[in-house]
Design a protein around this nucleic acid. Structure first.
Lengths: 247, 247
DNA sequence: AAGTGGTCTAGACCACCGA
DNA sequence: CGGTGGTCTAGACCACTTG
């Protein structure tokens, strides 16, 4: 039954409930709140931190959504995991940023970069007409020098006005955000397919070896589709990890 | 800019924000709120429905988390998808229930059912000692008569006191819930592996063909691990679909 | 400047849990 | 029974977007 030391800054631009959630997460990662330990009740926490109870609840709700905490009426709030061991993939992040955050030295080789007519699959995803001009790009992503993923993406051409070199150095999502595109929601599928000869060559795998395949349509905050991606990951070197929460 | 017709029942046991979310979701599925349409602002909605603004916000937040809506400050709330076309997998549900809900006629063949000593992998997952007695079960799941998945699960033996026949007819999560276990959080990984000879035979696949492999540790509302599962899905007949939301 | 969602408060009552 | 989280209210002020 613990009340972690927390210091919130009311003059900061980051919301109070975010500050609280971050500090509680840090306490869980840092071992101050070990797995199995119980938090004080919400009313006491609110008083201790000088916040209202709804604000405290909102912070706790974030951590529950992340799978770090479990709440039970009449009992309390307990720690069930720590985000150190649970890599949080399956968020709306780019592979480049994920690798960079893990200090895995991402590199990008541009295999293709140019305007193409939209295929039926792409036109459906981007809600444009068959044959419309779309930006098509194909990249090979390496981590620590080893091939990791083959990434094909299609975008409305006006969205990304940059040269391939910048793309090689940063990652697609970073560039899109820099252009003012705010990615909000994505619909993704995950499947597995055997590698073709060409794919195997690029990824240093045997032909027929299993690849993790994802397709993703990403929407901005206007609900407009801004990117369609079909990626292939070496199953021997990559897996998805995530948390499921019952609602 | 629409204010959907909604009728909430204040005497119902289901919370108001859930009722509102359900009816809004139904309106989206039913085409009353087509993709791209805008909801009225939160204050107007609250007044129209006779609810407070926080309650309305909570309902909208659920739908935003599901990827159905996008909110933007200064602009409004828009529909970006409908759960009809977006199958919501990757929730904390069982394959059996998912198939049953899709009218795909799930069948289960029990390949193994009994007590085993915990291996290192299982002991770590279930937070018990190496060699502890655990219930081990292995099932072949068919849908519409076709093999779909090979499912291996390990549980603390006291949790599930039933006979294999019930298990064949219902599905694991349904049985656990019936025993009073409330599943809350799970940590899952998704990868791909080539089928072994034995796996290929059971799943009617070619040896070496890609299988989607998941491992999952599920926790109850006390934060206790209650199930460890390692499942293999035929990649040719199964994929995961889900929604990612930027926070 | 007007309108929107984002945040925050200070209460209240309830449902559920465990001793 | 006391304690917990779950729900709900009626405000308030702010930050952001768009015209």
């Amino acid at each position: 039954m613990s009340t972690v030391q927390v210091q919130v800054d009311r003059n900061s631009r980051t919301p109070l409930h975010v500050q609280l959630a971050q500090q509680l997460e840090a306490a869980i990662q840092g071992g101050e709140l070990p797995v199995g330990s119980r938090l004080s009740n919400e009313v006491d926490l609110a008083e201790a931190y000088g916040l209202s109870r709804p604000t405290v609840r909102q912070a706790i709700a974030r951590l529950v959504d992340q799978g770090l905490l479990v709440r039970k009426r009449g009992v309390g709030t307990q720690v069930v995991g720590n985000s150190g061991q649970v890599r949080r993939s399956l968020e709306l992040t780019s592979l480049y940023d994920d690798l960079a955050a893990a200090h895995r030295k991402p590199e990008t080789e541009i295999l293709r970069f140019g305007i193409s007519p939209a295929t039926a699959e792409v036109a459906t995803a981007l809600q444009c007409e068959l044959g419309d001009r779309v930006l098509r790009l194909e990249r090979l992503r390496r981590a620590d020098g080893e091939p990791l993923a083959l990434m094909r993406n299609w975008l409305p051409p006006e969205l990304l006005e940059t040269d391939p070199n910048t793309l090689a150095e940063r990652g697609l999502y970073q560039l899109l955000r820099a252009e003012g595109v705010r990615l909000k929601v994505a619909h993704q599928t995950i499947s597995a397919i055997p590698a073709t000869l060409e794919q195997a060559r690029l990824l240093s795998e045997e032909p027929g070896s299993p690849l993790l395949a994802t397709t993703r349509i990403t929407y901005d905050d206007h609900g407009q589709p801004v990117e369609y991606g079909a990626h292939l990951y070496r199953a021997s070197r990559y897996s998805f990890e995530h948390t499921l929460v019952h609602r």
